[in-house]
């Protein structure tokens, strides 16, 4: 039972739970948190794959590093779109004549 087996298993479990959260939850912030949890699961699998006994593979690390930054940018874009859409809905609800 080496650590990478533990963490890749845990990563897959976290990924599956995040997937369920994306589909089942209603609130947009919950959905985005769930997507980020899926991302953490995937990163966990990748980094566990990079962990060898003697040496450590830097290529998955570089991929995860890129992935983290892109994930936070994508999350920010989604949050902003949600804010804009909520403003539009609110406007449509309070000024139904327009």
């Amino acid at each position: 039972m080496t650590p990478d087996i533990i963490y890749s298993g845990a990563g897959m479990v976290v990924f599956a739970m995040g997937l369920y959260g994306v589909i089942a939850s209603a609130h947009i912030l919950r959905k985005l948190v769930a997507i980020n949890i899926m991302g953490i699961g995937v990163f966990m699998l990748l980094i566990a794959t990079a962990h060898h006994d003697t040496l450590i593979d830097p290529v998955p690390h570089a991929m995860v590093l890129t992935g983290i930054v892109v994930a936070v940018a994508g999350t920010a874009l989604c949050l902003w779109l949600a804010v804009v859409i909520r403003g539009l809905e609110h406007d449509a609800a309070s000024h139904p004549s327009q």
Binding site: A26, H27, I28, A82, R86, E89
Partner: peptide, 10 residues
């Protein structure tokens, strides 16, 4: 408003 923005049910 759509349920995406209300925190009434999970």
């Amino acid at each position: 408003m759509s349920p995406s923005f209300t925190d009434t049910h999970a």
